[in-house]
């Protein structure tokens, strides 16, 4: 299941939700709010989502991961709201019988989520400026 959450993520509880006795591997990824980006000091990050479509597209990505890799369980959650340094912005968890499939599926899911799910990030810099990432007109076309 892919969810958009306005509440803080709890990676321990999320991982417990994937518990499955058939699984010998559980790979999780947590994305944290980092204090710098492209040479600028970050003060905080603001995330916004088009939640219904984000959850639908995220669900499709999880389905693709299940189809491509020998996965038992897969789930992901993305935060919205104004996050401080060190907070968890995104969490992905995958279980599988063996580690290779779990690692590969986890990597696939986070890469696709970043590329496709309608979530936007606004960086608030230490100097008070702000910018929506990937939306600057001088950026190369993706």
């Amino acid at each position: 299941m892919f969810r958009i959450s306005a509440e803080p993520l709890d990676p321990v509880a999320l991982e417990a939700g994937l518990k499955d006795l058939r699984a010998g591997a559980c790979v999780t990824f947590t994305g944290w709010v980092r204090d710098s980006n492209d040479g600028r000091n970050i003060f905080s990050l603001e995330y916004e989502a088009f939640a219904p479509l984000a959850e639908k597209e995220g669900g499709s990505i999880l389905d693709e991961a299940r189809a491509k890799f020998a996965v038992i369980g897969a789930a992901a959650v993305h935060r919205t709201g104004h996050l401080q340094l060190g907070e968890s912005a995104v969490w992905v968890g995958v279980t599988a019988a063996h580690r290779a499939a779990a690692f590969e599926a986890c990597r696939y899911i986070i890469d696709e989520v970043k590329a496709r799910v309608p979530v936007w990030k606004k960086e608030h810099y230490a100097d008070g400026e702000t910018a929506w990432i990937n939306c600057a007109t001088q950026s190369p076309v993706a």
Partner: peptide
């Protein structure tokens, strides 16, 4: 663009009553 909650081609036909969302470049994670 998304029309009525689904991604739509940029040349899709808009119909009366549609809900349209324009989606800037995404930046999750």
């Amino acid at each position: 663009a998304a029309i009525n909650g689904e991604f739509a081609p940029s040349d899709a036909e808009l119909r009366d009553g549609d809900t349209v969302v324009f989606i800037p470049p995404v930046a999750g994670g």
